[in-house]
Amino acid sequence: MSLERLPIIFRTEDLCAYYEDFMAIKHINIKIPQKQVTALMGPSGCGKTTFIRCLNRLHELTPGARITGSIYLRDQNILQLDPIVVRRRVGMVFQRPNPFPTMTIYENVLAGYKLLGIRLPRNEADEIAEWALRKAALWEEVKDILHRRGTFLSGGQQQRLCIARALAVKPEVLLMDEPTSALDPKSSLQIENLIVELKETVTIVIVTHNMPQAGRISDFTAFFYLGELVEFGPTAELFTNPKDPRTEEYLTGKFS
C-alpha cells in the first residue's frame, strides 16, 4: 500500500516540541493516513511520547513545555483550536491502564460524557456503552458486572475498558502510548487483535517498543531517533528494506 494514495488525517509541518529549552522533537514533517495503524518506533528517549502527546495537545500541560510549527487535523491547525475540542476528536490510551477508581465499569465507559456534564437519555447511554465495550472486545466479559468498579478487572481488561472509554466519545483518531507494555503476553495479544479490528472505525497511532508487535499490527511505521523523524513508510518496506542506516541498526538490535 502506498502512502500517496491514502487520505491523510494528520499532517505536521516543522513540528518542534520543547521542555523548557530542551528540544525533544525536531522539525517533524509527517503525514498520517486515515483509518490505518501507524506505529511510532525508536530508542528510549527519542521523543515518541512527546510527539504523540502533541497530537492531542497534552504536551502543553507539562510545565515549561511548548510547541512550534503546525499540526493539521484534516485541514485545521489544532494548535489554533480549543484543546478541549481537539481532545474530543483525538482520544488517547495510556501505557498503564487508568480507569477511574471511583466509577463503575459502566460509568467509566461513559466518563467522556459524564465528566463533561452531558446527560444522555438512558437508552442512548446504554447503546453507546454496549457499542464501545463490544468494539473494545470486552462486552462479553463484563456485560453482567457493569455496575462493579472498573478497578476490579484484570490489567488487560482494564486496558480494554480504557480503550472503550476512549472510543465512546467517537474520536477520529486513537493515540496509544505503549498500550501493552504493562500487560501479560496473552492480554497484549488480545489488544493487538483488537487494534487491527479497530482501524475500520478509527485511525490509530501507536507507540511501541515491540518490533514483532509493530510488524503484526501496523500498516505504516515511523522511526524516530534523537528527536528526529528518520524514516517513515509502509511497515513491511521499512522492516525489510530500511533506507537509513540508523533504522537498520535499530531493527537489528544494535541499540535500544
Binding site: I84, V85, M92, R96
Partner: peptide
C-alpha cells in the same frame, strides 16, 4: 494518570 485520562477525554 487519572488527571490525564480525564483531560484526554476533553474534560476541562
Amino acid at each position: 494518570i487519572l488527571r490525564e485520562a480525564s483531560l484526554a477525554l476533553g474534560v476541562p
